Simulated scan of single mutants.
Amino acid sequence: MPGESLELRISFKRLLIGLLVTVVPISLAGIYAITRSDRELRHTVGTHFKIFAEATAWEVGEFVHERVLETGKMAASNAVVEAVMAANRVWEGMSEAAVADRIKRVEDSWAGAASELIVRQILSSPAAVELRKYRDLDPRFLRMTVTDARGATVAATHKTLDYFQADEEYWQAIYAQGRGAVSVTDILYDDVTKANYIGIGVPVLEPGTNRFIGTLDALVDVSSLFRIVNQAHPPLNLRTSLLKDDGTLIASPEATLQANLKSPEWLAVQDALATIAGRQTGHLVTDVPNMGRRLIGFADTGLKDDYQKLGWVVLVSQDAREAFASIRLVGRLTAFLAAVGLALVTLFVVYFSLHRRVVYEPLKEAVAASPAKQPEQLPTAGTNN
């Protein structure tokens, strides 16, 4: 009839079965998804840390490569090449003994007034003027020295400690037994300029033949390199460090190279850096002494492939609880919803069991206790009522 409303009735038992079939699998699937997604999300966060470390390592590498290229341009300049070739012509026709004797006489008088004339010539030569122009354009170049094929100083931005450079380790590295090679030192400290620097040495080559004819050595201030590391990712509260390949801190928020400290995270990552799989993963979670459990991303600068003394590594780390805070919140929320679903189903099952026992058991007992009802007999034909 029009006035009647549609009423849908479902038995409690069927409702309970429906909940068991739907809610329980969904809740179990949610719990399984939590465990699986938690691992995946942790891996994703760790990969982000690896990317941060790689980005900083790339900047560090570019800093060094660019300074090497600039030093090479200086060594190829006309003023430097001409000065070196002119100095080498002085030795032509002289015996090795005469060359050694002349170099020794200048070297012996280098620290005294007797060397003032030759020092003035070296510092005022066109090549020295050219070097000072480069230094004025880029103050990161602290000092530059040019020598000839014998190791005698030809031009410089300053008076060097010695006139003869061929007995120095850095010069031999550039000379490379006459082949000529690029040489970069590890970070050192210059007492004169009060700055941390790397020494970049490049060969001066003869135009047309590329034959070794001399050297150019530059001391490059690396304080801007420290700023690259210390200013990396500050909004994210990440601890970024630049290390030597023995774990010594070059730059970090808490320490400088002068402190000569070892990174507390180094012991945790050095084994991973030693394997291809570890380098490819690029991150790990580990307990660090005095720092607690931390997520660490790491990346090799790759400088050692070109410069043997620069086995530098970048680490990016953060407290693990802070790093995985967002994952932990989502996981807990999902687990809570799954637990609520299972709890509701459990309550329904308990309620159904109790309700059935309270309602139906007394009815069964009442039916069992009542006498059986006899069926009525119908009157037969011919019988009076």
Rank of each mutant, 00 (worst) to 15 (best):
L249F: 03
A53Q: 00
T22F: 15
A111P: 15
P289M: 01
A86P: 00
Q121N: 06
P379N: 08
P207C: 07
A251I: 05
Q270P: 03
A368L: 12
K104F: 01
T334G: 12
E376M: 05
V184E: 03
R36Q: 11
S353Q: 07
I198V: 15
G208S: 12
L249V: 14
V45W: 00
V182I: 07
Q165W: 10
R227N: 15
R328T: 05
V60T: 12
R132A: 07
R357N: 10
E66M: 05
L16A: 06
V106Y: 07
E265Y: 06
L117T: 11
N290Y: 11
T286V: 14
S183A: 09
N196G: 01
A259D: 15
M144G: 00
K133D: 15
K373D: 12
V220R: 00
P126C: 06
S326D: 10
F141D: 00
R140H: 11
L161T: 11
A259F: 05
T334A: 06
T160N: 15
G341S: 02
L257C: 01
V99C: 10
T281Y: 04
E116I: 14
L188T: 07
G247R: 11
T193C: 02
R42Y: 06
T334W: 05
M85V: 04
K373I: 13
A274R: 09
Q231W: 09
L69H: 11
D221T: 13
